[in-house]
């Protein structure tokens, strides 16, 4: 998975979720979920990261189960819901809702955890003709993210160092962060321009992201599988 072209991978997985959105089969959903998990394990994703990410998903699935269970529409409903509801069993409805959450999450993780961000942006730039300003604007914004996390901690420490204790999401704490992110955008733009980047002029590329045969095979394979199911 890691060596696939990010742009193609993105299109493929987007296609898969799209198909899922129009099918209402728990079995298919669960199959997709387990396939994704298998693919993730094969591409050496850290078990711990995966586990942490899965917890909220499982919780959400449970929530959706109960929602589907309680509020399955009445057969007498005027809306043409019959297309979607194959069985009127409440449990079945619950499972369908829950498995859907799992399937989407599986596909999402498969993309996220196996894709290098820089490569992804570069690949979008090449394959989807994403304008350069966007590609690099995004990379720059992405770059300050770890800084933003650090900044959050620092702002908290700054309050603490003056004997003020603040609530973790209080406006007093978030405001300096907002001000800073605005400052950043201006200063980053200045920094990029002063290094000769304008987004409009020609430039060379050190890394070249290409689409190879195996990307097409992956695309074709996934499409075939979901359609055949």
């Amino acid at each position: 998975m890691r060596t696939l072209n990010p742009a193609i991978k993105f299109v493929t997985l987007l296609g898969v979720t799209f198909v899922l959105a129009f099918r209402y089969e728990p079995a298919l959903n669960l199959a997709v979920f387990f396939l994704c998990m298998a693919a993730l394990l094969c591409s050496r994703v850290k078990l711990k990261t995966l586990g942490i990410l899965l917890v909220p998903i499982l919780l959400a699935a449970v929530g959706m189960f109960f929602t589907g269970y309680r509020f399955s529409a009445d057969a007498s409903m005027p809306v043409a819901a019959a297309d979607f509801i194959v069985s009127d069993s409440k449990v079945w409805n619950g499972i369908a809702q829950a498995s859907r959450v799992l399937a989407y999450a599986g596909v999402g993780f498969l993309f996220t955890l196996t894709t290098d961000r820089i490569l992804m942006v570069k690949s979008f730039e090449k394959q989807f003709r994403l304008p350069q300003v966007w590609a690099y604007g995004l990379l720059a914004a992405w770059g300050i993210f770890p800084q933003a996390v650090q900044e959050y901690k620092r702002t908290r420490a700054a309050f603490r160092a003056r004997g003020i204790s603040v609530f973790p999401v209080s406006p007093a704490l978030l405001k300096p962060l907002l001000v800073k992110s605005v400052r950043w955008s201006e200063e980053l733009a200045i920094a990029m321009e002063s290094k000769g980047f304008s987004g409009e002029e020609e430039r060379t590329e050190y890394l070249e992201v290409r689409v190879r045969l195996r990307d097409w095979i992956f695309l074709a394979g996934c499409v075939a599988l979901t359609i055949l199911f």
Binding site: W134, G137, L177, W184, S185, F197
Partner: peptide, 16 residues
């Protein structure tokens, strides 16, 4: 027209 700083602003707000 969008300028570089607008785009970065959008990107940063997007990320945040």
């Amino acid at each position: 027209k969008w300028e570089l700083k607008d785009i970065i602003m959008m990107a940063i707000l997007g990320v945040v």
